[in-house]
């Protein structure tokens, strides 16, 4: 296109579509377009305000009820001489704690860093402009999400089952160098798994958006699986118990 555009106007348009409405629309009197906003829009007041206030009051009411019914935990005063066993981090870190047992460096620092950098890079790796504003970007995306969910569930739950029943490298080769375990442990297996799986998805669907969906779903599902296991099935010494009623020592 060779339309000459003044630089100020071009700058103003950055990131937004040129709007056909604005304060000019606020003339006195009625127009033929009454009650039918331009570009399928509605006035923010009062609709958005009502929705927002509803969410505010709903959340406050829910928290109020929760807080009246359940008390926040408070144990005995901190005592460095008496370790908690098991000592569990808050739930959102338990997935990581599940990996920390093999290598605190890999499970607690490097993998979280990889996950964060990976999440931040998503928009720059997937630059397709199709499928915006649509859940799962359509039916292919739904299928990829579902298959990835199954695959990552099997892989993460399988790894937990494997290690619970048979241990990991250190139980098989007690003399093994820690460097090997830092490099090869359930956490890194999951990372390699997600990379291979998403490359496969990109090849099959010829779409990076589908690759991104595979990565994100994998991350979400393994996060949930590991968090679940650590929350409900880990007892003293991080041993596996189906229920805390089986914990030794009459807990």
């Amino acid at each position: 296109m060779s339309v000459a555009v003044k630089p100020e106007i071009r700058r103003e348009r950055a990131f937004t579509e040129p709007k056909t409405y604005g304060l000019m629309a606020l003339a006195r009197g009625k127009t033929a377009a009454v009650d039918k906003g331009p570009e399928d829009t509605v006035p923010t007041w009062p609709t958005v305000m009502i929705l927002e206030i509803t969410l505010l009051m709903g959340a406050m009411a829910a928290m109020m009820i929760l807080s009246l019914l359940f008390d926040a935990p408070l144990k005995e005063i901190a005592n460095p001489a008496v370790p908690e066993n098991p000592a569990k981090a808050p739930w959102y870190f338990l997935g990581l704690q599940e990996l920390v047992g093999y290598s605190a460096l890999m499970g607690g620092m490097i993998i979280p860093l990889i996950v964060l950098i990976g999440l931040a890079l998503i928009p720059y790796l997937d630059r397709e402009s199709k499928g915006i504003g649509q859940w799962f970007s359509g039916s292919t995306g739904k299928r990829v999400t579902l298959r990835t969910a199954v695959f990552s569930f099997v892989l993460s739950a399988g790894l937990v089952a494997l290690t619970v029943n048979f241990g990991w490298l250190r139980s098989w080769f007690p003399e093994i160098n820690q460097l090997v375990i830092i490099a090869i442990n359930p956490g890194t297996v999951l990372v390699v798994g997600v990379v291979l799986w998403s490359l496969l998805v990109v090849r099959q669907t010829k779409s990076r958006r589908m690759g991104a969906i595979a990565v994100f779903t994998f991350f979400l599902v393994s996060f949930v699986v590991l968090t679940w296991v650590a929350t409900f099935y880990r007892g003293p010494n991080w041993d596996f118990y189906w229920s805390s009623s089986q914990w030794p020592g009459g807990h």
Binding site: N79, E84, A87, A89, S103, A104, G108, I182
Partner: peptide, 21 residues
Amino acid sequence: DQLAFWAVTIGANIAASPVEL
């Protein structure tokens, strides 16, 4: 409390984990 102390101790040990390497 005990919960606080030991959860944060875990976190601190993770912060210290480059000693593994």
